[in-house]
Amino acid sequence: MNGAARGAPEKRIVTRMADRLYPTATFIGAIVLWQLVVIVTGIHAIVLPAPTAVIESMTSAFGTLAHNALPTVLAIVVGFVGAVAVGVPLAILIAASPTFEKSFYPLLLGSQGVPKVAMAPILIVWFGFGFLPKILIAMLIAFFPIVIDTVAGLRSIDPNYIHLARSMGASRSKIYWRLLLPNALPHMFAGFKVAMALAIVGAIVGEMVGANNGLGYVLVVANGNLDMALVFATLVWLVVISLLLTGAIEVTERILLPWSRKSRNEGLARTIR
């Protein structure tokens, strides 16, 4: 952690741009290679469509994809928000009440053995086709990391903070709101990031198993029609959606908790020096 990191600011900006250049170059290289492989081997489009065919499909099917992206994004977001709305209060209860913890936490941990994606068909039977089951699947799968990380965050405090607050005559609720929860936020955001990635998986699986719209549904239909170009075009949309949604959480964290990254980096820098 000496010479390079302490370089002049201009140098660091150049380094950062170079850092982005490398993956971009690799990405473009891979696409070119892909195109070449398709041309050289003459592989059938049913197996592997050329990148140009995918781009072609993205433009021709733009309307369909855009139209179906909306319900997918909605299912992801509603599922995620639902998971936060249920997961955070549950975590607070678990952290606050030993009785509650003893009665529910082991069951909750045990329930993680159930592969939630495999629950999709059951949920379809219970709630029928449509919006509700895919939201429930997204929620179910996203909810666990939120609970775990929130509980861990609420417990990650040095007990002397609580001693200090008690010597200030603080009420339990004040200790919770002004001390424990803010202190837990960085942990919670770590959970939110994982949860968002899982909510995306959940929503798509839900759409693949039982829905009549959404990108997951488009995926199944295109697959059935052996329209591989459209399958890949849909995947591109899903990648972009996933990057945007996880990015949104990252941005929210940076805006809401500027202290989190900085104090963490500072702590890291101190241990390295």
């Binding site: 040095d158 001693h163 200090l164 010597s167 603080a170 002004r178 803010p182 908790l257 202290w259």
Partner: peptide, 25 residues
């Protein structure tokens, strides 16, 4: 009370850390 660790709150600036005492009371 002062402990060996400063036990400041990372999300509050210096003044608000001092006034934490007042707020909690």
């Amino acid at each position: 009370i002062v402990f060996q660790d400063a036990l400041l709150l990372d999300w509050r600036n210096v003044l608000d850390n001092v006034l934490f005492q007042i707020e909690m009371r």
